[in-house]
Design a protein around this nucleic acid. Structure first.
Lengths: 98, 98
DNA sequence: ATAAAGAACTTTGTTCGGCAAAGTAACAAC
DNA sequence: GTTGTTACTTTGCCGAACAAAGTTCTTTAT
C-alpha cells in the first residue's frame, strides 16, 4: 500500500479553484459573472482564485466588450486540463487505494 | 448547472485527513506508526489531524500495550464512513457536473 | 471635456489552518 | 527512581482564504 498524497496538486485542493476548473472542463468560454453566480462568492475572492489559476497557466483569459459593457471570459488551457485530470487520477488512486 | 461546493466536508479537504480516512475505509484497525509511515509526516502533525477527526467522531481510538510498548490504534466510525462517502459523492457530482 | 456608471480587478486587514520543533505525560522495565 | 519508548501537546511561525473597501478602465451621457 502506497499513498501518493504529495502528488495531489495544491492548486486544486481549494474548493473554489476545484469548482472553477470543473466548470471550465465542460464549458469552453465562461465569463466572470457566470462563474461568480455559480460559485456564489464575492468578486474579489473569485478574482484572486482566477489569478492563481492563471499564474499556473491553467486557464487563459479573453477580454472584450459585449453590449458596450466589459466582459472577461476564461477557459482551461491544455496544460490546465492535463494537470486537472492528473489530479483527479491521483485522487482516485488514494481513495480506492489502487 | 448547480455546483454544490459548500456541501463538501471541510474535514476531508485537507490531504492528510483525506489520507487517514482513505486508509481507515479499507483497514479495520490501524496504529499510529503505520499511519505515520504511510503518510510520511511528523508525529505531532499526525496527532493534530487525528484529533480533528476524533473531534468529529469520525474515528475511534483504542489504546493498549503490545510487546510491553504502548500502541494506539484507530478505525473509522460508522458516522465517519457515512460522512466520507457523502463527501466523495458530492465531489463526484462537482467534477462530473451531474 | 467632464462626469457618471458598471465590470473587473487590487489592496488592506483580519482570521484561520498547517506545520516543524521542542516539550510533556504515561507506562514499562530494570 | 531512572531510563526508554510512544503518543500527544504546546509554541511559534508562515501562508492561505476571505470580506470589504478602494481603484482602474472604458463607455455613455451631458
Amino acid at each position: 500500500m502506497e499513498l501518493q498524497l504529495n502528488k495531489l496538486n495544491k492548486t486544486f485542493e481549494n474548493r473554489i479553484r476545484l469548482g472553477v476548473m470543473s466548470i471550465l472542463m465542460v464549458n469552453d468560454w465562461v465569463d466572470f459573472n457566470s462563474l461568480k453566480d455559480l460559485l456564489k462568492i464575492t468578486d474579489g475572492n473569485l478574482a484572486s482564485h482566477i489569478k492563481a489559476l492563471e499564474a499556473e497557466t491553467y486557464i487563459e483569459i479573453n477580454k472584450q466588450f459585449i453590449n458596450k459593457k466589459p466582459n472577461t471570459s476564461y477557459r482551461a488551457t491544455l496544460l490546465g486540463r492535463k494537470a486537472f485530470n492528473e489530479h483527479l487520477n491521483i485522487l482516485e488512486k488514494i481513495i480506492k487505494q489502487k
